[in-house]
């Protein structure tokens, strides 16, 4: 069951719409939070209702933060709430960490309905539960109408580094294989399909999912043979590969025919004039792994539900340092550059 099918009854409230007062810190703020936010997300640390959460964690830690400003806030198969949890969980996972605790902050534009807010909260609750993380501190602010875009969410998270993990760009070396964990560009195109002025009918749904369990399984088994993990969100696969090539001072060769893209996503990209390599992903990760274990990692990944379409898309090479080169389906070669600004729809 996906997150949009889950529900919790909304409490009876004497307001339907969130107003400036709900961010004042006074009675209305309390009303909003006590109305169900705390109940919905409850856990012993949050229940302290203190200025911050106080806890103990042992081992090496990872700390990450991200803000979510997506428009529209509801999109096929998911919403901004799920994204905000998965996003930070995944960023921690890419550090080789087991995500533990999250903070959660809202900047709400006056006028957001309580029903919409509730739906987002429910998604947050279930996503956090599924990912096995706790929301232990948070904040809510309300801004005037026109000063925001319905709702912005920031989450930060802390995780404990997996004992076998050694994720570092310095470990990337010539001959390493580049593995992608699933179809690319699906999330970005799902968002496009519901964006104002561009609505088109499609069954494409966002692929957002938490990646922490699969990463833990891989680290358990393959440990420091996994040299680098990245989730190609904004800027897509091409941008992340360029960052890797730049920082490792090595080249990346990728083979277009090996890159998994759903047929309908590829079709939508053709029509919209977008290159799937630059379109955002939310439930996909890239792993740069030692060549000798690449096949086993791929075999393992393919046996895990939701990762059946993972593929080895290329390798790290000594030639053309700091450049990503794609072998096209018809056998030509071209450079894949970093994305400049936003990808823009074209004239014809």
């Amino acid at each position: 069951m996906n997150i949009t099918q889950m529900s919790c009854p909304m409490p009876q409230l004497d307001f339907e719409v969130i107003t400036l007062g709900h961010g004042s810190g006074g009675i209305l703020t309390n009303k909003l939070l006590e109305s169900g936010v705390f109940d919905l997300l409850k856990n012993p640390l949050l229940d302290q209702k203190h200025d911050g959460a106080i806890f103990r964690l042992d081992g090496q830690l990872a700390f990450s933060t991200d803000s979510y400003v997506i428009s529209p806030i509801f999109f096929p198969n998911s919403n901004i709430g799920e994204l905000a949890i998965n996003g930070t969980v995944n960023d921690l996972s890419m550090c080789g960490a087991i995500p533990k605790y999250l903070s959660l902050s809202f900047i709400i534009e006056e006028g957001l309905t309580m029903k919409e807010f509730w739906e987002i909260l429910v998604a947050i609750k279930f996503t956090a539960e599924k990912a096995g993380v706790q929301i232990v501190t948070g904040d809510t602010k309300v801004v005037e109408r026109g000063k925001g875009d319905k709702i912005f969410i920031n989450t930060s998270g802390i995780g404990v580094i997996h004992p076998k993990a050694n994720i570092n760009i310095k470990n990337v070396k010539t001959g390493d294989k580049i593995i992608i964990s699933g179809h690319i560009a699906t999330h970005g195109i799902a968002i496009m399909s519901v964006r104002e002025g561009l609505e088109f009918e499609t069954s494409i749904e966002s692929d957002t999912q938490h990646l922490n369990f699969v990463i833990k399984e891989l680290l358990d088994e393959f440990g420091n043979n996994i040299h680098l993990l990245r989730d190609p969100t904004r800027g897509g696969v091409a941008t992340v590969l360029n960052e890797i090539a730049r920082d490792a001072k090595l080249g990346c060769d990728i083979i277009q025919s090996q890159i998994p893209v759903l047929e309908e996503v590829e079709g939508a990209c053709e029509l919209l004039g977008l290159d799937p390599l630059y379109v955002a992903n939310e439930g996909v990760f890239m792993a740069i792994v030692a060549a000798e274990v690449a096949d086993n990692i791929l075999k393992k990944l393919k046996s895990i539900p939701n990762f059946e379409h993972s593929a080895c898309i290329g390798e790290v090479v000594a030639e053309h340092p700091k450049q990503v080169v794609l072998k096209s389906k018809i056998g030509g070669k071209r450079v894949v550059n970093m994305l400049v600004g936003e990808q823009l729809p074209r004239i014809c």
Binding site: H320, Q323, K333, V335, N337, L344, R346, I347
Partner: peptide, 18 residues
């Protein structure tokens, strides 16, 4: 422009040309 020749070479120029 997405149809501009300079953009084409900048984005995709084959390895030999860069």
């Amino acid at each position: 422009s997405s149809e501009g020749a300079c953009a084409a070479y900048f984005h995709y120029a084959n390895v030999e040309a860069v």
